[in-house]
């Protein structure tokens, strides 16, 4: 076979030559062809299998790491206890109340401070440095103080939970108010908008994405704050149950309590995400357009 195609005379167009269409397949990762839930379940099963091997082969003592079987059995026990409204449900509601009120308190203080810092020169110049200074402190170290001031009851846990989660809200609010586009501010100035009008009609809506980013971080850390408060200051919540189980080396119980506790964090995070979806609807639509365009 000779190769005359190497020299195509200019008079001959490509369509006149009997060349096959240059159709070729793009390389696609096979993982992207698998549905997402299959990948997730697959990874979980792989993880459980490794866990089972490590524990049943005696590589790690069962006192330190319980087998997946033991943990799942204990998950069932704790689940039944929660459903039958026994002492664990009481403890769960104690922690849930701490988380809820801690978050509400953090939200109220965080938004107030955030607006002060983000909107006023005084706040930015005088208040912000102190907020940064306190934010850099190890906040858990304040737990004994909260116990001393507010006692061993629910209030000291609410205070610690709020204290830990307030800073992302302050920063998110202030950063959101600062994020306003320079042109947008000039436009508002040129149409003679007052400071309040600029805040309500421009700065608050354009700052909502940053605000919600801070709020999401707060929604997760508020659970840690409440649990840390219970570890360090007693109480009747889930944190106390975890502490007791750990002191008895009941590691399956610790694991299953943590897993149920994560439901609380999920509810908090999910609620904030849903609120963001509702309030910052324009981000949602622009994302939709981006996905439409890529298809």
């Amino acid at each position: 076979m000779s190769r005359p195609e190497q020299k195509i005379s200019p008079e001959v167009t490509i369509s006149e030559l009997a060349i096959a269409d240059t159709v070729w397949t793009e390389k696609v990762s096979w993982v992207s062809l698998v549905p997402r839930w299959v990948s997730m379940v697959g990874l979980l099963l792989l993880f459980l299998a490794l866990w089972q091997i490590v524990t049943s082969a005696g590589i790690v003592s069962q006192l330190i790491l319980p087998s997946p079987g033991d943990t799942i059995r204990d998950l069932g026990f704790v689940g039944r206890n929660l459903i039958s409204e026994d002492y664990m449900l009481v403890a769960f509601w104690v922690t849930a109340r701490e988380v809820f009120w801690g978050f509400i308190l953090a939200l109220a203080i965080g938004v107030t401070l955030g607006v002060l810092v983000g909107e006023t020169t005084f706040g930015e110049r005088a208040v912000m440095p102190y907020i940064v200074a306190i934010d850099t402190m190890p906040k858990l170290a304040f737990a004994p103080l909260f116990v001393a001031w507010l006692g061993f009851g629910i209030m000291s846990k609410v205070a610690l939970a709020a204290f830990i989660s307030v800073f992302p809200i302050v920063v998110g609010t202030a950063a959101g108010l600062h994020a306003t586009d320079e042109n947008a501010r000039m436009l508002f100035k040129s149409i003679g908008a007052s400071r309040l009008q600029t805040l309500i009609k421009l700065k608050i809506p354009s700052g909502l994405p940053q605000f919600f980013t801070g709020l999401k971080i707060a929604a997760i850390s508020v659970v840690s704050g409440a649990i840390a408060g219970e570890f360090l200051g007693g109480g009747q919540g889930f944190g106390e149950l975890i502490r007791v189980a750990a002191s008895q080396l009941d590691t399956p119980r610790v694991f299953s309590l943590i897993i149920y506790l994560s439901a609380l964090g999920l509810v908090m995070f999910g609620t904030v995400s849903w609120l963001q979806y509702k309030f910052v609807f324009w981000h949602r639509t622009s994302n939709n357009i981006a996905t439409k365009a890529s298809h």
Binding site: D181, A184, M186, K189, F281, W282, H283, S286
Partner: peptide, 19 residues
């Protein structure tokens, strides 16, 4: 002596508000 209502301004960016 400040912003005037009898002028109209336009910038390089359209600066429309997405909400």
């Amino acid at each position: 002596l400040g912003a005037r209502p009898d002028i109209g301004m336009m910038f390089q960016q359209a600066t429309l508000f997405p909400w």
